[in-house]
Simulated assay, not measured.
Amino acid sequence: MTEQAAQDEPAPTAPQPPPPRRRLWPWVVLLILVLLALAAGAVSAVLSREVAAEGSRTVHIRYEVTGAAEDVTLTYSTWRDEELSTGRLTLRSLPWAGELDTKGFMSGGSFVVRLGKSGGEVACSVTVDDGTRRTARASGAFATAACDGF
């Protein structure tokens, strides 16, 4: 009987391995990527709004050259319809001043004064209506004064 009782009892089974754990790190990485994408979108929206506001604002720029020289070449930035271009002017006497009202102004303009072979002394100045002012001086033959970054 003992043999028959042993046959009726279920055979012992091997212990089952625990169910596999779900990995958490892919979800954390996905969450970080989503947050970075949202932050990049927000920064892009703010920057585009700022650029649009700056582009529609009217700005007054004044260029000036003083000194003693007879052969002077001016090269300066101009903005027309949101496009940057360069103007060039040759002077035979100083002082000189020029003014420009523009829209679509972007920082980084340039105003360069070059003396010719006869030399001399010059000073350049650029004033933007918000008070930004750049100045530079040069003297001697073929010297250059650069007022840029306004």
Rank of each mutant, 00 (worst) to 15 (best):
P12Q: 12
A53R: 06
G98R: 01
M1W: 08
T135P: 04
G108D: 07
E64N: 09
T102N: 05
L31T: 15
S44P: 01
W79E: 01
G55C: 03
H60R: 14
V128H: 09
T102G: 00
A37K: 08
G116H: 03
R21L: 10
S125Y: 05
D148P: 02
L115E: 00
G108L: 04
W79N: 01
S56C: 02
L47M: 05
R133E: 15
F142H: 05
Q4L: 10
T2K: 07
V29E: 07
A11G: 10
A68Y: 13
P10W: 10
L30T: 15
P19E: 15
S85H: 14
E9I: 12
G109A: 10
S85D: 12
E64H: 06
V51K: 09
V34W: 06
T135D: 13
Q4T: 02
E82D: 13
A138D: 01
V72Y: 00
V65R: 00
L24C: 05
L38G: 15
L115N: 00
R21C: 06
A42D: 02
G120M: 05
T73S: 13
D81K: 09
F150S: 05
R114H: 05
T90L: 14
R80G: 08
Y63Q: 04
P20K: 13
V72K: 00
G87S: 12
P10M: 14
G41F: 05
I61D: 00
Y76G: 01
D101F: 06
C124S: 03
E83N: 09
Y63F: 15
V122K: 00
P15V: 05
G119A: 09
E3M: 07
S125K: 13
L38I: 12
P95M: 14
P17M: 10
P15I: 07
T13A: 13
L38K: 14
R92A: 11
A97I: 09
